[in-house]
Design a protein around this nucleic acid. Structure first.
Lengths: 238, 238
DNA sequence: GACGAGATGTAGCGTCGGTACATCTCGCTA
DNA sequence: TAGCGAGATGTACCGACGCTACATCTCGTC
């Protein structure tokens, strides 16, 4: 592979350049339509060439969307996910919002397009990744709803929060974080975090009492460790 | 009012018929674009007439959106709201989703259009109505967040859930209700209700969530162990 | 009965997405 | 090495689009 066949290189090149040009135009005017002729002009090629590679405008858009999801998943898998599934959901949420705010053009194509009954196929990829995480959470007994329901809950709200910020044209980290914690609380059955540290401390005491009353469940030393750890969790609360 | 002036009647008539035709076309193909010529043909009029009344395609769309919000608010104010503000929020949420599912064409124009930095002016009307309700809730001491934050939280998630159902092409009442209650719990600070063993199990979950969200307090391995142990405590509960 | 303003039609502009068809450029094979 | 075939690209065009300059028509008004 010192050179690569000139034919292939050229072919891929033109296609890629068209894709890049389309992506640039979309990124330059998020939410607006773009002209195929503008794409062709940017590459210095005529329309039949574009149609040769992409078949239709929708074909080009689909390719751009595919690339958008590639970028998204690349960013996402760059940071390795937490072992803890709920924490992983937290990271996934923030990564989703961040990607949307950084690439509103791509994002609105990927998630903002309203064509009832048909959402981009590529959406299924991150969707399945999400369901894999919620399934893990379910297997660890962290959910109070089915993992599919949890994933649907997360997707709807995560997209809603992201689109809202794009439409309003301003990032609102507090809104995102607040909704995120509300969602996680809803699917894990925990009360809203930050609602009351005292309440949480009391919850810890209930666990301690149960463990202390039944030391045979965990064993003596483990029970003591557990009590100790919960104490430390409580201390660093405020 | 036996006849009305022929001038006014005719003028309003043509304008209204154009508006109706546009609304019909939009409703017939939600999310799709529509042609001004099709609107004119449906009314039996030429394009300059349409431009005389609406100035531009966007002008016609804006008029349709305005009418959409009129329909929405009419439906909403038909059912008198509960005087309990939280219950009123619940009703408002369901009315919002119902309107979106019944009028996906209007709805996507009203809330699905992504043009960063500019959302339809008419959106401010229901937005202010919502803020009035959350403000009342705040005054009654029902909220754990500011009324504006609560309203923003509700808007983002309510739109998100509605658009999601429209895009997927299927109503999912459970999703809507679940998200709704999660949102209300988040802004009111109330935890999920429950009693008996389930409630106890949730106590453990609160500790788990705190530990998982702050793995640096105990360290990664200890956190995992803690989660595991609490799980075992829960299993032998009943 | 003439005037003026609003409503409507005629005809056309430039651009759009899309395509039939010819041409060009290669690698491959006889 | 000559020529074939397939992919890549250009030429020229189509119908439909949003939009508009301009003329015409229809009124109520004075």
């Amino acid at each position: 592979m010192t050179e690569g066949s000139s034919l292939d290189t050229q072919a891929v090149d033109t296609r890629t350049r068209l894709l890049n040009a389309a992506a640039d135009l979309i990124a330059a005017a998020p939410g607006e339509d773009f002209s195929l002729r503008a794409v062709c002009d940017a590459v210095g090629v005529k329309m039949p060439t574009l149609y040769h590679f992409f078949g239709s405008k929708q074909g080009l858009i689909d390719a751009v969307i595919e690339r958008g999801f590639d970028m998204y998943l690349a960013e996402k898998s760059a940071a390795e996910p937490s072992h803890d599934p709920i924490q992983a959901l937290r990271q996934g949420w923030d990564a989703h919002v961040a990607f949307g705010l950084e690439n509103p053009g791509f994002y609105t194509l990927m998630y903002g397009k309203v064509r009832p009954g048909h959402s981009p196929d590529a959406q299924s990829r991150p969707g399945e990744m999400l369901r894999a995480v919620t399934k893990r959470a379910e297997e660890e007994g962290r959910l109070v709803v089915g993992y599919k329901e949890a994933a649907a809950h997360i997707i709807a709200t995560n997209i809603g929060v992201t689109l809202r910020q794009i439409i309003l044209g301003e990032a609102d980290p507090d809104l995102s974080a607040h909704v995120r914690e509300g969602v996680l609380a809803a699917i894990t059955g925990t009360g809203p975090s930050g609602a009351g540290d005292e309440a949480d401390a009391r919850l810890g005491r209930a666990v301690i009492e149960r463990a202390a009353a039944n030391p045979e469940i965990l064993g003596e030393t483990e029970t003591q460790l557990l009590i100790q750890w919960i104490g430390r969790l409580g201390e660093t609360t405020g």
